[in-house]
Design a protein around this nucleic acid. Structure first.
Lengths: 150, 150
DNA sequence: ATAATAAAAGATATTTTTGTCTTTAATATA
DNA sequence: TATATTAAAGACAAAAATATCTTTTATTAT
């Protein structure tokens, strides 16, 4: 059982967040990047990353263009795109809504034994994801106080 | 990708927490419960639950006794056993320590772009798990303000 | 138009997690 | 001591997540 190393997000979701941050760090006029460039930049498996980018396109977080000089670019304003949207697109809403103990019947009125304790943490997480924009995060990379890679 | 519904803990970990809470709700003098009783009480698959209880025994959170009238019981005082110990036993320490973006090189000195934001949430989660005892939680069930089952 | 490029779509493979089944070991009781 | 009971251990199976490969579609440039 100690082989399980559960983390906050799925790998797919982490690649998605990484990819979106990378996109948001691109300089004005060069906001488009191809699959190869992206997966190289974030050190993720190319084909798997393709699937994830596809999903982000379906969720209208990215646009895509086929053909030579094609690629992906962020749909809309990175200062109005929040981490919560990326997480929701890939990992669904259980991280925001699901009962920590997995109980179907858990609700505010019929709470599981850890409901109140987790509500606070979950609200904290949700609030953070809903208020942290891609621009917030990408700016930190661009000014050199945070790092996507070594 | 929307088939992924990532949650906070693995299923195994949720069963473990549920099982431990159930154990902690047992009245004095009847603190021992067998696999069947436990998995019925928390509505979990019996054989899989057996593996999880085994792990909890290995981690010294439970004792076990074989043979007729055998079963499991909590090792030690439920008021001094914290949710963090259960989570750590089953899901490892990545939920407490791992980089939210999965970056190997992420650290306080070389932070990933969301490091500071996640640190606060993670510290909140960790603090809650380290200070919430099994007794805290089980008491809520026993006085009827929280529910393990419908 | 044709060829080259790059994403989309779909099939397939691998790994991990979840779950089951069978055999073995320990213990209580008749 | 023999039998029944229950957990431990190990093999096995199914499902889900991760990852790859191939074919198709759209677009650009020649």
């Amino acid at each position: 059982m100690s082989c399980i190393e559960e983390e906050m997000f799925s790998k797919a979701c982490k690649y998605a967040i990484n990819a979106m941050i990378y996109m948001a760090t691109l300089p004005q006029g060069q906001e488009r990047a191809g699959l190869k460039e992206i997966s190289k930049a974030i050190n993720s498996p190319e084909a798997f990353t393709a699937k994830i980018l596809q999903e982000l396109v379906k969720s209208d977080l990215l646009n895509s263009v086929k053909g030579p000089n094609g690629g992906f670019h962020i749909q809309g304003d990175p200062s109005r795109m929040f981490l919560a949207e990326i997480v929701h697109s890939i990992d669904g809403d259980m991280i925001f809504l699901g009962c920590a103990l997995g109980l179907e019947t858990c609700s505010e009125d019929h709470p599981c034994p850890v409901h109140h304790k987790f509500k606070a943490v979950r609200d904290h997480l949700t609030g953070m994801l809903m208020t942290t924009s891609l621009k917030d995060v990408a700016d930190r990379v661009n000014i050199g106080i945070s790092f996507l890679r070594y």
